[in-house]
């Protein structure tokens, strides 16, 4: 059904292969390979077996990263996830110490996360005037505060029933179980964000929430759901965290939110919303994990490793600006 002028518009996508090759995500793959190469060069112990052996303690955060990607695409932020991990782990340990069966302990861990996320989502969706930074700033302090009160003067707690949770730290061959779980979750989250109607709605909201609303998208309901999911994933993270530390304290999870946001941003997801692919964050997470393992094996100061990661983060977000500056310089040179 052509219009009066008979003008046609093309619907053929062009240059998809080129776009794929030159995307941020492909760059991530290259950097990942670079890190693996680096690891092999600097450390004789950088074998697949060893890497998988040290991976579990870094893997739990990736669960949160998957959900944080959704929150960032929405254009929101959640800095309370670390505290949710703390609270979930704490309540799980308390339940465990009280003699509850393992299944209930797991349930409490995850449901605590769900409840916390649900609270975040409730406030965010009903008081839309409030920036989510402030909301989660408040809840961050509250969740950790509840954990502090629950832990009492000691400030820490250990799991009594260590055997049950060891299930989660088992290996299949050389690959830890947690790795498979992460892969499964990652696959689900990435596909949902990139290929489903729900995922597209997130991008719409993050790009222009007003236009999304006028197009019939239930913006507040979706935000509520995503925050709840983030809290739940923090609960899952807490579970795997317990599987490697067997206990919780008032400082559990401190800094997780920033590390997770750093992974997402490094992976190409912008904090302004509506931009980036979750697979980028996924690659970024493993880049950071493998780099940390490599540097750890040559006994680099753990703090120095954080310095390097911080520098990597800043350089990665400066790349567009550097690119523009170079382009401008080239233009000026051409004019002269």
């Amino acid at each position: 059904m052509a219009g009066k002028s008979g003008r046609t518009i093309s619907a053929e996508p062009r240059g998809t292969v080129k776009k794929l090759l030159f995307s941020w995500e492909s760059a991530m793959v290259l950097v990942f390979l670079g890190v693996i190469l680096l690891g092999n060069v600097i450390s004789p112990y950088y074998t697949l077996k060893n890497v998988f052996r040290e991976m579990p303690k870094y893997l739990s955060e990736i669960f949160i990263m998957l959900a944080m990607g959704y929150i960032l695409v929405l254009g929101d932020i959640d800095i309370s996830v670390g505290s949710i991990v703390c609270l979930s782990a704490t309540l799980a340990c308390i339940a465990d110490n009280a003699g509850l069966p393992f299944v209930l302990v797991v349930l409490i861990c995850i449901l605590t996360g769900l409840a916390c996320g649900c609270l975040n989502g409730f406030i965010a969706s009903h008081f839309t005037e409030l920036p989510t930074m402030i909301i989660t700033l408040g809840t961050q302090i509250i969740f950790r505060g509840i954990a502090e009160v629950s832990l009492g003067p000691g400030g820490s707690i250990s799991l009594q029933n260590k055997d049950a949770i060891k299930l989660l730290s088992r290996k299949i061959g050389i690959i830890p179980v947690s790795f498979f779980v992460v892969l499964v979750f990652a696959l689900i989250f990435i596909v949902v964000l990139g290929r489903t109607t729900f995922g597209r709605k997130l991008y719409a909201i993050g790009s222009n929430s007003t236009a999304a609303k006028y197009a019939g998208i239930d913006v507040q309901k979706i935000r509520w759901i995503v925050f709840t999911v983030a809290g739940t994933m923090a609960g899952v993270c807490a579970l795997f965290f317990l599987a490697s530390t067997y206990g919780a304290s008032t400082t559990t999870g401190q800094g997780f939110e920033m590390e997770v946001i750093a992974m997402c941003v490094f992976g190409g997801i912008a904090t302004t919303g509506g931009k980036g692919k979750l697979i980028g964050g996924f690659f970024a997470a493993f880049i950071i994990v493998c780099l940390r393992i490599a540097l750890g094996q040559i006994n680099m100061n753990t703090q120095l490793i954080l310095v390097i990661i911080g520098a990597m983060l800043i350089v990665s977000v400066l790349i567009p600006a550097i690119g523009n500056a170079l382009r401008l310089a080239r233009k000026k040179a051409e004019k002269a």
């Binding site: 946001i261 904090t271 120095l304 310095v307 911080g310 983060l313 800043i314």
Partner: peptide, 20 residues
């Protein structure tokens, strides 16, 4: 660069430097 990201990066850098 978004302020939260830039200052997050430096948060790691300066804290690390303090330890170093």
């Amino acid at each position: 660069v978004a302020p939260i990201i830039c200052t997050m990066g430096f948060m790691y850098i300066w804290r690390g430097m303090a330890y170093v």
